[in-house]
Amino acid sequence: MARVITLTVNGRKRVANVEDNELLLDVLRDKLGVKSVKAACWRGECGLCSAILDGKAVKTCLILAVEAEGSEITTAEGISEDDKLSPIQNAFVEYGATQCGFCTPAFIVSAHSILQKNPEITEDEIKEKLSGVICRCGTYNQMLPAIKKASKEYRRSKSA
């Protein structure tokens, strides 16, 4: 059945008319115009549809839009503040952590959420926690130092 859901997307209250069977991925992209959320497998394997839902990175291709009623969603478009790139975005640019870029928003939000939670994260933990998102261009070796560099900023803002 059709219903109206309300969510906060990147800090803004948004309202959408959705059917019960619609996926959060499709509502974000097609009804709310949030195109940074990509998809490449549609079954939870590639992680490109990742977004931060109430503080946690999740895969939106396996979540119903109606399940997200009342929740807060952050995507790559919403991580930067006042036109300035966030530390993780800056580091990705500096270290060349993008190739084709199709997976980049998913890595940005996933890395952002794990750094927010634990800026002291080790190299092995970064590798493990980001293994749910696939970069076929194989840009992991650029992402790793970028994430480590950005973690310093997250430490700073956490201790501040």
């Binding site: 939870g44 992680g47 946690k56 990175a57 396996l62 293994s131 749910g132």
Partner: peptide
């Protein structure tokens, strides 16, 4: 089991 983003759900 699966991965961090799925384990959140």
């Amino acid at each position: 089991l699966s991965d961090n983003n799925l384990r959140n759900r």
